[in-house]
């Protein structure tokens, strides 16, 4: 079983701040971490490998600094790490990212692809499903439990008010919730090994045969951020208390009329 986990290196948002002038994330001095949902994906991949055998390959698209995220994944126990990195890939939106990662995954090979549900910096939850579309394989998002059964995967998918238990033919892609599995720590020896191992780097030239250059990078991205701004915090609102039901109705109606809502 070849399990491939896609991870993203993100700023630790517990500490992140927005530049009040440009409204962009201040990344200087902000520690980078593996996105929480992705880390949970790593954990489940490692557990599945230990149950059914095989290998776990971790893939990260990002700048060279993302190397440390891959070393961390290796130190948790992954077998192989691949950094997808190149200037041509910079500025990619979710579609372009999935196009590139799809090409990388075709090159690497896979039986099961696991991604996190969404990244804490972009919050789109799009890249996982888009990769599945790129690869033309079935997908199950919001996985809370995963089991392997022969050449199928049984996935418990979380919905707002219910669960779905789905049986999916391999190869397929699942997106993991951070509830899926509490990730293990790296081990000391794992870190030593991680830095003795090679991280494979896939650049544009390595992937160009399977990539349409018009659909990658900033210029190939169908979506662009036109503006970002910090929302004004909402005020606490007005509290009306000590009213009977009739008085409350009247008070609310008066407010609605006053604001020309009705």
């Amino acid at each position: 079983m070849k399990i491939v986990v896609c991870i993203k290196q993100v700023p630790d948002t517990a500490e992140v701040k927005l530049d009040p002038k440009t409204n962009t994330l201040i990344r200087d001095g902000v520690p980078s971490i593996i996105n929480h949902d992705d880390k949970s994906g790593l954990e489940i991949a490692l557990r599945l490998r230990d149950q059914v055998g095989g290998t776990v390959t971790v893939v990260c698209m990002g700048p060279p600094q993302a190397d440390v995220a891959l070393r961390e994944a290796l130190a948790m126990g992954c077998d192989k790490a691949v950094l997808v990195s190149g200037r041509e890939f910079g500025g990619s939106d979710t579609y372009a990212t999935a196009t590139i990662l799809g090409a990388a995954l075709r090159k690497i090979g896979y039986d099961l692809v696991i991604t996190g549900r969404q990244a804490i910096d972009g919050d789109t939850a799009q890249v996982g499903p888009q990769i599945a579309e790129q690869l033309g394989i079935p997908q199950v998002s919001y996985a809370e439990e995963v089991q392997i059964q022969g050449d199928h995967v049984i996935v418990k998918r979380q919905f707002e008010d219910q669960y779905h238990i789905l049986k999916v033919q391999l190869p397929c892609l699942i997106t993991a919730l951070s509830e899926l599995a509490e990730p293990r720590y790296m081990s000391v020896g794992g870190i030593v090994d991680a830095y003795e191992q090679e991280v494979q780097v896939l650049g544009f030239d390595d992937l160009k045969d399977g990539l349409n250059p018009e659909w990658i990078g900033l210029s190939g991205s169908p979506t662009n951020v036109r503006q970002s701004f910090t929302k004004q915090p909402k005020t606490g609102g007005e509290v009306l208390s000590g009213l009977s039901a009739d008085e409350a109705v009247e008070a609310i109606m008066a407010k609605l009329i006053q604001r020309h809502i009705i």
């Binding site: 440390v68 961390e72 130190a75 720590y185 790296m186 870190i191 030593v192 830095y195």
Partner: peptide, 14 residues
């Protein structure tokens, strides 16, 4: 070194 920094990170987080 990078390896020492990551080990320090593990020790700190743990």
């Amino acid at each position: 070194s990078k390896s020492h920094l990551l080990q320090q990170e593990l020790f700190r987080r743990f």
